[in-house]
């Protein structure tokens, strides 16, 4: 009866809340237990971004934050230089537009002064935390979508 009333009023059953919370907390746990995965993800991320702009590798920061229903990855990647956008010889792949990143800073050494461009914010939700992660498999430490 009470359940019926609860449903009438659109209250979320506590089991759904439990499931949602568990999903998030386990993702966080798994990440915390797999620092090597975060490191290699960070490396790959920086590699990709530095194809387009010059990046201060030393100062890259990657953090995870819990948001309402998802886990967010926040990467803070200081950009030290951006090449001039006109590169006629190379096919202008979508990439060649280094976003309207502020006026091209006086190349290099702009680090400290610059309001660090927040490069990436991606959100991880979706599939339940995969297992068989946190293996220190030589080399390939990507969080494979197990199963």
């Amino acid at each position: 009866m009470i359940e019926w009333v609860k449903k009438m009023f659109g209250q979320t059953p506590s089991s759904s809340t439990a499931k949602e919370r568990l999903r998030l907390v386990l993702m966080t746990d798994h990440l915390a237990l797999a620092p090597e995965i975060i490191e290699s993800m960070k490396r790959d991320l920086v590699d990709v971004i530095s194809r387009y702009v010059e990046v201060d590798r030393e100062k890259v920061e990657v953090n995870f934050e819990r948001e309402d229903k998802a886990l967010a990855m926040l990467a803070n990647i200081p950009i030290t230089a951006v090449a001039r956008p006109n590169k006629p010889e190379e096919e202008p792949k979508a990439k060649a537009e280094p976003a309207p990143a502020a006026e091209p800073e006086p190349v290099a050494e702009a680090v400290a002064a610059e309001p660090q461009a927040k490069a990436t914010t991606s959100t991880m939700s979706g599939p339940p935390p995969t297992r068989r992660r946190r293996k220190k498999k030589a080399g390939g430490s990507k969080p494979a979508p197990a199963h």
Partner: peptide, 18 residues
């Protein structure tokens, strides 16, 4: 309790833990 939505179901638990 599972039926009333007040407890995780076995299915939920298996899915979470795989």
């Amino acid at each position: 309790m599972v039926r009333s939505g007040d407890m995780l179901s076995v299915e939920d638990v298996c899915e979470i833990l795989s």
